[in-house]
C-alpha cells in the first residue's frame, strides 16, 4: 500500500497557540480517511496544510512521496471542496467546473465537455448555464465537488462539505460520496465534527483534540475500543467510568467505557437513580446516576421505561465494558 499523504512531526503554531502539534500520520492511497474532532482541534488546519494554504512551522509533509515544503497550492496535485463551497459568483456553473481546466490551458470546447460530464456525474447535468446563486445549498455542494473532481486530483480534500446541508440531504450525500470514492478510487480526506458521518463513511478515522491525534483506526475500533475518555465521550457519547469506579468493578485502576445501548435494566447490578427520560423516536434515553457517576441508557422501543426519581438496577454484559489502558 503506497502512502498518499504523510505527516512526520508536523506542527503549526500561531504564537502560543498550537493549532497542530507534532502530528504523525500516514494516509494510504485510495483510502477514505476522516479527520474527526471538535472545532479548534486542528483538523481543518491539517487539511489546509495538505492543500498548501498553511505552512508548517515544523516537520515535513509528503504528498505522494514528494516533500511538500515550498510547493505552493497551485502546484499541488490535490483539490479541495471548501466548507462554504467558494464557487465563483461571476461565472456560470459550467465555467466554475471548467475553471481548473481553463487554467491548465485545455481548449474551450474540450473543457466544456469535461465540465458537463463532471456535472452529469454529480447529477447536475443541464445546470451548466445557471449561476451559482440560482442553486440550492445541496446543488452548490455538488458543483464544488464536480469542480474539484474534474481536474482528476490524486487526493480530494473535503472540509466539512456537508455541514451546511439539512439532515436528509446530508445522509443522501454521505451515500453518494462513498459511492463516488469507490468508483473513482482516489484518496478522500474528509474533515468533520460529526462522529456519525466519520464512522459511516470512512475506512479509517483520526480523532483530533488540542492539535493532536488522540486515536487513529477503523471506525469499529474507535467506536468500541476508545483509547482515552475523550474519544469515548466524543465518538458516540459513551459512558465514561472513572478509575475509582472501575477499581470497584474489575479491580483495575483505569478508565472504562460502556455504550449507552449496552446498558440494560437487570435483576442484579448497579443501583441507579433516574434523573430524566427523553423519548427519541426509535429509542428512549434514560439518564441516571450510579452514586456520583452519570450514566446514560438507551432503551429500545417497547421496553418498560422507568420514571424520573425512581431507583432502578442496571447492568451490562462483561464484554460490553471496555477497559482503557491505565492513564
Amino acid at each position: 500500500m503506497t502512502s498518499a499523504i504523510g505527516f512526520s512531526g508536523v506542527s503549526r503554531h500561531y504564537g502560543d497557540v498550537k493549532a497542530v502539534d507534532n502530528l504523525n500520520l500516514d494516509i494510504a492511497e485510495g483510502e477514505f480517511f476522516a479527520m474527526l474532532g471538535p472545532s479548534g482541534s486542528g483538523k481543518t488546519t491539517s487539511l489546509r496544510l495538505i492543500a498548501g494554504f498553511e505552512r508548517p512551522t515544523a516537520g515535513e509533509i509528503r504528498i505522494f512521496g514528494q516533500v511538500a515544503q515550498g510547493i505552493p497550492p497551485y502546484k499541488r496535485n490535490v483539490n479541495t471542496v471548501f466548507q462554504d463551497y467558494a464557487l465563483f459568483p461571476h461565472l456560470n456553473v459550467r465555467d466554475n467546473v471548467a475553471y481548473g481546466l481553463m487554467i491548465a490551458g485545455t481548449p474551450k470546447r474540450q473543457r466544456q465537455k469535461s465540465a458537463d460530464e463532471a456535472l452529469g456525474m454529480v447529477a447536475l447535468g443541464g445546470y451548466g448555464d445557471r449561476k451559482p446563486s440560482e442553486l440550492s445549498g445541496g446543488q452548490r455542494q455538488r458543483v464544488a465537488l464536480a469542480r474539484a473532481l474534474v481536474n482528476k486530483p490524486k487526493a480530494l480534500l473535503l472540509d466539512e462539505p456537508l455541514g451546511a446541508l439539512d439532515l436528509k440531504l446530508r445522509e443522501q450525500m454521505q451515500e453518494e460520496l462513498k459511492t463516488l470514492q469507490r468508483s473513482l478510487g482516489i484518496t478522500f480526506i474528509f474533515v468533520t465534527h460529526d462522529q456519525g458521518e466519520a464512522l459511516s463513511m470512512a475506512d479509517r478515522v483520526a480523532v483530533f483534540n488540542n492539535g493532536q491525534i488522540v486515536q487513529i483506526g477503523a471506525p469499529e475500533d474507535i467506536y468500541y475500543r476508545p483509547k482515552t475518555p475523550f474519544v469515548a465521550d466524543f465518538v458516540g457519547s459513551s459512558n465514561v467510568l472513572p478509575p475509582e469506579f472501575m477499581n470497584g468493578l474489575v479491580g483495575k485502576s483505569s478508565y472504562g467505557a460502556v455504550r449507552p445501548e449496552a446498558v440494560r435494566l437487570a435483576e442484579q447490578g448497579q443501583s441507579a437513580l433516574v434523573r430524566s427520560v427523553s423519548f427519541l423516536g426509535a429509542a428512549t434515553r434514560v439518564t441516571m446516576d450510579i452514586g456520583n457517576v452519570p450514566m446514560t441508557m438507551l432503551m429500545p422501543k417497547g421496553a418498560a421505561v422507568p420514571k424520573a426519581g425512581e431507583t432502578v438496577t442496571v447492568d451490562w454484559a462483561a464484554e460490553d465494558l471496555h477497559v482503557m489502558a491505565p492513564a
Binding site: 494554504f53 462554504d84 487554467i103
Partner: peptide, 27 residues
C-alpha cells in the same frame, strides 16, 4: 470577496496573477 474564493482559485491551479485576472479583478 471571501478568502476561500482566492484559495479555491489557487487550489484549482491558478498562480496569483491568474487568480487576480480571473477571480479578483472580475469580482
Amino acid at each position: 470577496v471571501p478568502q476561500s474564493m482566492l484559495e479555491a482559485s489557487g487550489d484549482l491551479g491558478a498562480h496569483p496573477a491568474q487568480t487576480f485576472r480571473h477571480v479578483l479583478l472580475p469580482l
